[in-house]
Design a protein around this nucleic acid. Structure first.
Lengths: 406, 406
DNA sequence: ATGACTTATTTTAAGATATAAAATAAGTCA
DNA sequence: TGACTTATTTTATATCTTAAAATAAGTCAT
């Protein structure tokens, strides 16, 4: 709903306001809701009354009285509906099922054969995973509010997906349409970093922060940017492509075809390449990136000078790239995530902060906080589920009275 | 007004909706307003009726009938109130007075003695300029809705201004308070590039564009970024500091103290420095930048190879920096302005577009347009006046019925 | 237990707004 | 001049919010 112009719109909007408040501050009594929303107590009674009758809210207990009628606590009914979040990775698919209290009720993970990266294959995997998840948790498909999918690429607004990862090469695939044809549920797709940013800003390291960025360090580098409390998408939903911002005009070649991108230096292959260059080894193509990075961090902790040098250099590149983002967006908080980010995050944090402070302008750098993400492995699934949740919270139809009597 | 919760809020909001529509699409009939806003004809009658009675709207004519009652055209009364926009530059102050139809009714320009850059001096100049402007145009101060000021520095939300330009060195000056103590009008201050971006997006090269960036090329380099139709400010109003994003990790020293900033290469002194380096001359400190750039563009047009080389290099640096901005913000349009931008814009446009397309990712680069700004000299004053206009359009108090009878 | 007091929630009465439909206004055109 | 067309205003009805009054459901001292 854009702007209420009608008296009925007010009721709808007030229901939304109450739902959003409860979603982030459960449980609350009617009085507390009234105070936080500036809605009068009578209105809160009316609004929550409808929501209770519809089964969207539930009473969950009383607050012990301090000399008066005790407050009744209200929450969103955890089982009013369920959310499915899918993390479509370069090497795996993970599906997770949550209730409205964001409790994980089930999960499935598939590895992916290197040859199977066609859209049809993924549609099939997601669709069958969905059924499996529903039956294993005993949840009826009708109770699922929708399915959100985070993908490692660019998603246009009409659901066209482009993924440039090696072995993939999807170009404007009509993925949303394909999924909707196969799956009888509302489907939402977005870039994985964007989804993760949503999860971290709503329920993770950035609870309550209005302007923040979530940085995803993995094989590739991405970012999700939250402005004014909601996901920043730009004109065609491809905002936040931080991994391919340039910090060296004639720098290292990047897999995107350009040179000097942040990703070329601070993506896992970039870090490994720095390491090999320093030690004179040639990079082994098939070596396990995760193991290599883990070993690097261990060596760093042990004081190994090459490891220190490489991680400092990585912090330097990241700091310069992050300073550009900070100068442009002026966020209050930057959250570091992604598997590589989780591994190296603590080790590089001090250096990273130092370089950001050095390269970013003082007014933006002064109040900036940098933290690590809170949802490790589950961040993208969680974020994908948040795409559904976001829709649920603004889904006026859900809050409309379908049949009124008396 | 954040979210209407009350029936009276609806009326206020609908007044705002109508005002904004008229501000950008004058003149319109009630029927057209009804269609564009989805408000019913009866409501439009009520809303415009109040606005007409308050003198905010006026009838300006009829549309010739095509076989029915002719439409009455409505506009915002141009003389309901006036706006003052101030361009506080590094070397001048310019004040302009506009009516609500954005017609310039008067202007004053002061040069600035190099020694006079104290806050007190500027407060004095603005305050006396204001009086002069009012008396020379014959407009009463009570009719002035407010005064907007664009400054070449960072403005925090509480009105603390920091300007790092040579000769200035303002650090968190309480400029807003100082002005408000002296001037008996609503005062709004913001960064000049931000103000200019507002003007270009509302009434200039970006009319109707929701996501865009305005790039200011002058002695310094700044940017104003419009997202979802309004100015993007970030957490502490210092977003958009594009001039100090880095494109070379160990690049040219910049006056900000860092290295490799876009400004160091493509600000006027940076361009001139490129030119001197190429020709082997040492840069003369006191040479007039404007003249030098003008000569450079003339030489370029005449096919001078050094000039071509320098402007191509400038386009290269700008293109790389702009690609970073485009990757992060995914705007629909980039507008080039500022005095240097106006001079070199046409000459470098093709090369600039080429480099942006080369460095930015395809999904963001594909739909991007790059244009020149439309308000040359007046852009910052115009934008500063838009700060007042923005406030006017969302000033509920103005639209409240002060005294209702019958 | 009882009455006084306290706090939470619901009910009620009044005021405001929007819309749809009907009425009116102000033209064109043959 | 009358039929027709389109714009705007008026009217009747349904909602909504709030403030204030009424109820509900406790605590606490006696």
């Amino acid at each position: 709903m854009k702007s209420p112009k009608h008296t009925v719109d007010i009721r709808l909007q007030n229901k939304q306001i109450v739902m959003r408040l409860l979603c982030f501050h459960e449980p609350m009594s009617r009085m507390e809701i009234s105070q936080d929303t500036t809605l009068s107590p009578g209105t809160v009674t009316n609004v929550t009354g409808e929501l209770l009758q519809e089964g969207i809210l539930a009473k969950t207990g009383l607050v012990e009285s301090v000399g008066g009628r005790p407050r009744t606590l209200l929450t969103i009914s955890p089982n009013y509906g369920y959310l499915i979040g899918v993390d479509l990775g370069e090497t795996h698919i993970q599906l997770e099922l949550f209730n409205l209290a964001r409790q994980k009720l089930g999960a499935i993970r598939y590895g992916i054969a290197e040859s199977g990266n066609t859209p049809d294959y993924y549609v099939e995997q997601i669709s069958s995973g969905l059924k499996e998840l529903a039956s294993s948790t005993g949840i009826k498909e009708e109770a699922i509010l929708g399915i959100g999918i985070g993908v490692p690429g660019v998603v246009e607004h009409n659901g066209y997906v482009s993924i440039a990862a090696p072995m993939w090469n999807w170009q404007r695939v009509e993925f949303l349409n394909m999924l909707e044809a196969k799956i009888n549920l509302p489907v939402y797709i977005d870039n994985g970093a964007k989804a993760m940013a949503l999860a971290e800003s709503w329920f993770g390291a950035g609870r309550g922060v209005e302007d923040m960025a979530v940085i995803l360090l993995g094989t590739g580098i991405g970012a999700g940017i939250i402005t004014k409390g909601s996901l920043y998408r730009g004109a065609t939903n491809s905002a936040g492509e931080w991994g391919h911002t340039k910090i060296e005009l004639n720098g290292r070649p990047c897999r995107c075809g350009s040179q000097g991108c942040v990703e070329a230096y601070a993506g896992a292959p970039g870090i490994i390449s720095s390491l090999k260059t320093l030690s004179g080894e040639s990079a082994k193509q098939d070596e396990d990136q995760i193991v290599t990075i883990k070993n690097l961090v261990e060596a760093y902790r042990a004081g190994d000078s090459s490891a220190v040098q490489v991680l400092h250099a990585t912090a330097h590149y990241l700091g310069a790239g992050l300073a550009n983002l900070v100068n442009l967006f002026n966020p209050e908080l930057v959250v570091i995530g992604g598997w590589a980010g989780l591994l190296i995050g603590e080790a590089i944090m001090d250096e990273l902060k130092k370089y950001v402070a050095q390269y970013a302008l003082a007014p933006s750098a002064a109040h900036l906080k940098i933290d690590l993400c809170q949802f490790g492995q589950d961040a993208i699934c969680m974020g994908a589920a948040c795409l559904v949740l976001e829709e649920f919270l603004s889904a006026n139809k859900k809050f409309m009275r379908q049949s009124v009597e008396g």
